[in-house]
Design a protein around this nucleic acid. Structure first.
Length: 479
RNA sequence: CGGGGCGUAGCGCAGUCUGGUUAGCGCACCUGCUUUGGGAGCAGGGGGUCGAAGGUUCGAAUCCUUUCGCCCCGACCA
């Protein structure tokens, strides 16, 4: 039992903060609501980034960079957009010792500057589609912050595309949603529900918003990524037009989509346990740690350490450079070193003491199950990758089983409230309400429509309004 | 922005109600010795002037006023 981490049962939100602190993922910054992403947290972000970045490039997107500061007038060009973001913008009013003629907002998202540039770059149907992504930071002055889940400044990726037709833009929106789902499930081991947002939960300025929703182990939902079909709203606001094949001047159709450092929070709240962080192998910066153990410095120097280095080298050759670390903190006692590595979330620990040395093995300990077993040195390069894949699969399967166990179908509001206000979880129900009904349900129960899941085309009687032909919605309390 | 809590050593806290030796304790840190297969023991040591400003007083971490900041819970959001 970890002595520096409170149990999930006792205080879930404190547990979350304790895990992050113990794993040294992040720390508070001197400025309210901001965080420092520490080296181990950043390494995890880089792994996450790498998977998404590859997928974006594989699907024909390119990276670019747009500026941090945006003229305030840009934000005001799209009515819904300004209404949605103005309250949480940080504004620069002075620079170079003088008051600026026009205040500049620190970007909360970049649709506006990018729209401005697209209007210059796009002339003809031949210029389309434009498929650009940028990795950057954004700032949203949240009233209440929480490490990784909601900080004033966060890191993310924002894709912005422009298309000649509505159909093509919708296709892009859904394609990116599916790429998100794929990486979240296959790399981060996060089972997600991909679906359409309700009217009330839409991105400011979007015609339609799609989302990937994950269930955390406190049964609350976390919006893990969104993909927006922006229609021609930004095209009209920024006069992004092109001449079509038949000579007509038309507005483009745009999309935008993003995932952020919030995904680190999702990993923490999906896989970690009361001992600390658990990282799925495919996104773990360090996939295995080798632990030479002996009270005798001579034994360490002459036998264990050279062998550990050889084993690490053999593993790095198959797992990738720097995937395996040798823990040489011999000033720490074995127990301290076990715990330190446990709390870092490293998927596999390989212990090498004199007993193992004599038998030509290492003792492996799985982070996810605690299971121990020997691996002979000559089999290590073939066995470890297999074990890591098993851990990856186990984490995903466990998370999926948990979500299924905590998802309930309801027919009426009484049942609905019983679940939401009781144990919690995802509640499936046919729903035909609009903004007003959503608001009422939220006020009364705290739950919101997380999404209308894709691929669930069945319809039924609305549990709230009694209207027929209602679509299937998933409700939950959310972060 | 509402409600609650808190600012004293790197971290966690006691001391504040009832003003009074040199501001304590645990962890961490440094040195030495003994230890070392699931969070070690002993001994020695370094580090703070009590969030900030003003006031009351012979005397303030403690009382008064002002102010700044942080955390947690809500409303708002990736």
């Amino acid at each position: 039992m970890a002595r520096n981490i409170v149990s999930r049962e006792k205080d879930y939100s404190q547990w979350y903060l304790d895990v992050i602190k113990a794993a040294e993922l992040a720390d508070y910054a001197p400025v309210r609501g901001c965080m420092i992403i520490r080296p181990d947290g950043y390494a995890l972000w880089e792994m996450i980034q790498r998977h998404f970045d590859e997928a974006f490039k594989d699907s024909g997107h390119v990276n670019a960079y747009f500026p941090l500061l945006i003229p305030i007038s840009f934000l005001e060009k799209e009515a819904d957009h300004v209404e949605g973001f103005a309250p949480e913008c940080a504004v620069v009013t002075h620079a170079g010792g003088e008051e600026l003629e026009e205040p500049l907002v620190v970007r909360p998202t970049s649709e506006t500057v990018i729209g401005h540039m697209y209007s210059k770059w796009i002339q003809s149907w031949r210029d389309l589609p434009v498929l650009i992504n940028q990795w950057c930071n954004v700032m949203r002055w949240e009233k209440r912050s929480r490490l990784f889940l909601r900080t004033s400044e966060f890191l993310w990726q924002e894709g912005h595309t422009a298309h000649a037709t509505r159909e093509e833009a919708i296709e892009e929106t859904l394609k990116m949603l599916d790429i998100y789902r794929d990486i979240m499930e296959n790399m981060l081991a996060l089972p997600v529900l991909a679906g359409e947002k309700s009217e009330g939960e839409r991105f400011p300025g979007a015609d339609n918003t799609y989302t990937c929703e994950a269930m955390m182990t406190d049964r609350k939902a976390l919006q893990a990524g969104t993909s927006h079909f922006l229609g021609q709203n930004f095209a009209r606001a920024f006069e992004i037009t092109f001449q079509s094949k038949d000579g007509e001047l038309e507005h483009v159709w745009t999309t935008s989509w993003g995932v952020s450092t919030r995904l680190i929070g999702a990993i923490v709240m999906t896989h970690s346990d009361d001992d600390g962080l658990v990282i799925p192998p495919r996104v773990a910066p360090v996939k295995a740690v080798l632990l030479p153990i002996s009270p005798d410095q001579a034994v360490l120097d002459e036998k264990l350490l050279p062998r550990a280095n050889e084993v690490a080298e053999a593993l790095n050759a198959v797992l990738g450079k720097r995937s395996v670390k040798v823990d040489t903190r011999f000033h720490m006692r074995p127990g301290d070193r076990f715990f330190a590595n446990l709390q870092k979330g490293i998927p596999l620990r390989l212990e090498l003491g004199e007993k193992e040395f004599e038998r030509g093995v290492v003792q492996a300990v799985r982070r996810d199950t605690g299971e121990r077993f020997d691996i002979p040195w000559d089999k290590i390069a073939t066995v470890v990758p297999v074990i890591l894949e098993e851990i990856q699969k186990n984490l995903y399967d466990k998370a999926l089983a948990f979500r299924k166990q905590n998802t309930f179908m309801v027919k009426d509001y009484v049942e609905f409230r019983k679940i939401i206000e009781g144990r919690g979880g995802f509640v499936e129900a046919f729903f035909a309400g609009g903004r007003e009904e959503e608001k009422l349900i939220k006020e009364e129960t705290g739950a919101t429509v997380r999404c209308f899941p894709l691929g669930r085309e069945e319809t039924g009687t609305c549990f709230f309004t009694g209207k027929p032909n209602a679509k299937l919605a998933v409700f939950a309390k959310a972060y």
